[in-house]
Design a protein around this nucleic acid. Structure first.
Lengths: 141, 141
DNA sequence: ATTGTAAATAGAAATGATTTCTTTTTAGAA
DNA sequence: TTCTAAAAAGAAATCATTTCTATTTACAAT
């Protein structure tokens, strides 16, 4: 499973620009979710000029293409996560350290049958504290 | 199952103010989710002065108390829904007409066991088009 | 009934994450 | 190389949501 981001982008009809590739590899190195501004700050190390709007747009495009996933956060800000896991699954996110664990379970097949309408998307996300954070500051994010 | 909102509020240690009660009955009459501004516009019919911040604050407090539920919307704006159904369940929301259907299924028990950490909350929501909307404008929200 | 007090509210103002706009640059097909 | 649609910069705007302060109110305790 070689990480061929350029190829992934081409499949999505997105140009493999250096900044897109950098965003992908940057996120791929993280075990936690990141905000657009955090991504932007890191990109500035490698790019003399990089606009925050570019980061927002690219993160959104990459998420729409399914290469990264959005995290729904109680604080209503945007966060994104690169998940190498390619099959359908969901996430447990730590509200404190932002670590993400995969949840390899989704009852959506059962649910879709019962719905009286057309399903376009679904959200399943579990929020909490990872084991480490729960132990170190027992309960409060 | 008499709707005794005043009592519900007291249980939450929230004062049963006329505006809170009005927000609750207003939402309880709807089969669909509403935005803070929409709630505010309707309240203005009955209250000479009612501030938008009051509506925001109350909707948030009522949702935190579990009397109403938040809807996670792709457009990232806030929406709230009053659900008379008291047992744990989730929702199928129509992105077009905003109607809500109950989903009486939640795999969270299974999921919680697998998570390596402390679960604080979870989101399960199915987005799509209700039967009526799917038929009338087949596919686009 | 009356009073006292914490909670709730109005109204104005601020906020700030996100988006939009216009111009310039670039990736990649031809 | 050339061409063209897509991507990006940079500045500016947006606008839903929140914050702030003074005033009012619900309701528990007289």
């Amino acid at each position: 499973m070689p990480e061929n981001f350029a190829h992934n982008l081409k499949d999505l009809k997105l140009k493999a620009t250096p900044k897109r590739l950098a965003i992908l590899s940057l996120l791929a190195e993280e075990l936690s979710y990141a905000s657009p501004e955090e991504v932007w700050r890191k990109l500035r190390r490698n790019f003399a000029s990089i606009g925050l709007p570019t980061v927002y747009r690219n993160l959104e495009d990459l998420a729409n293409g399914g290469l990264i996933t959005k995290v729904i956060h109680p604080n209503r800000q945007l966060y994104y996560y690169f998940c190498p896991n390619s099959h359908h699954h969901h996430h447990f996110i730590c509200l404190s350290c932002r670590k993400v664990e995969d949840i390899n379970f989704c009852g959506m097949e059962e649910i879709e049958k019962k719905v009286d309408g057309t399903v376009l998307s679904h959200i399943v996300q579990v929020n909490g504290l990872c084991r480490d954070c729960a132990e170190s500051h027992g309960g409060t994010p």
